[in-house]
């Protein structure tokens, strides 16, 4: 027990699947029991390792989607076609099955409930996951810090946590949620599909004068584009934190 209290080297722990939820046809949330989980901050991630019978291992990083609930953590996995790890975690990995996890890791792309500045979250596709952890952590802490989320997705069917986001946008005072659709819009939507641009960020974000903390997460091209827009609009680059999700083998 004394060893676990020392924040020394990062070690692998065996986690088991407690339950799973389908978010979209290509994304699944895994609720893992990780005995001795030390807790984490919103925005942190874990490394997950799979080992085949012949000893071959494959390792991937996944953002944690929610605040810790005792020894339970939630990850949302997006299927990467032809990937080595994600198809297994989505289609095969079942309740009670073990998987190795180490973490939490990452101390930069994090939001702390003690922070007093307004927050802008900009998500591209599966980049919503660590940002959802921040929205949930805000709620869990009873924080009144104003949050705005701009969520770029291909189609309405690609929205993760759709029901919960609708509910939170209604019930969590000070949380605004807007969507930018790139391929297909809902019926009656006022704008045609388009890639996120200056107007979206300017209209649905915060003025730079409010010195918001900006968190941008998504595929590399999306993150570069949004970070450039924020800096061009006058946001301090040091307040624009980015996390790129990319093709690392899935």
């Amino acid at each position: 027990m004394a060893r676990a209290a020392v924040p020394g080297r990062l070690t692998w722990r065996v986690a088991k699947l407690a339950e799973a939820r389908t978010e979209t046809p290509t994304a699944r949330t895994l609720v893992l029991d990780v005995p001795g989980w030390p807790g984490h901050l919103a925005g942190q991630h874990v490394d997950v390792r799979l080992t085949a019978e012949d000893g071959y291992t494959a390792q991937r990083s996944y953002s944690i989607a929610a605040p810790a609930d005792g020894d339970r953590i939630e990850l949302t996995i997006q299927a990467v076609p032809e990937g080595e790890v994600s198809p297994y975690l989505i289609d095969v990995y079942g309740t009670g099955d073990p998987v190795e996890v180490r973490g939490p890791v990452g101390g930069w792309f994090v939001w702390r409930p003690t922070s007093m500045d307004p927050v802008l979250l900009v998500a591209g596709g599966s980049g919503i996951v660590p940002l959802m952890a921040m929205i949930r952590a805000r709620r869990a802490a009873g924080s009144r810090i104003p949050f705005r989320l701009i969520y770029s997705v291909r189609t309405p069917g690609d929205v993760y946590y759709a029901d919960e986001l609708r509910r939170r946008a209604r019930d969590d005072a000070g949380l605004d949620v807007t969507y930018a659709y790139t391929r297909e819009v809902p019926e009656g939507w006022p704008n045609p599909p388009h890639r996120i641009g200056v107007a979206d960020v300017n209209t649905n974000g915060w003025p730079p004068a409010l010195t918001p903390d900006c968190y941008v997460c998504g595929p590399t091209g999306f993150v570069e584009a949004v970070a450039d827009i924020l800096v061009a609009l006058g946001h301090d680059p040091r307040r624009v934190r980015t996390e790129r999700f990319g093709p690392t083998g899935g």
Partner: peptide, 23 residues
Amino acid sequence: GPHLDGNVLAGPLREIFAMDVTA
């Protein structure tokens, strides 16, 4: 080619260092 960012170093570096070096 496409790149990620230093956030992905968090796990590998925490294997070596007691502190989070990515911050």
